[in-house]
């Protein structure tokens, strides 16, 4: 199943690995910031309504 990458196995694998890490970090940071600000806004609006 794994293709034979021949003499360039390290280069190709490294390119894929680093790209996945960078893209994964972008997705993770986006989702994390989204849920954090959503929670903060719910709390702030809750306080505002109670005042």
């Amino acid at each position: 199943m794994i293709p034979d990458l021949g003499a360039y196995a390290v280069e190709v694998s490294l390119a894929y690995l680093v790209s996945f890490v960078v893209i994964g970090a972008l997705v993770w940071s986006t989702l994390r910031a989204n849920s954090k600000t959503k929670r903060e806004l719910d709390e702030a609006e809750g306080r505002w309504r109670n005042e």
Binding site: T30, T37, E40, L41, E51
Partner: peptide
């Protein structure tokens, strides 16, 4: 998907900031 989600996050952040200033 990511830019829309991040823009939504920025809008919410502005709203939280505005509420905090009003408080």
């Amino acid at each position: 998907a990511l830019v829309l989600m991040r823009t939504r996050t920025e809008i919410r952040r502005r709203r939280v900031h505005a509420i905090t200033i009003r408080e």
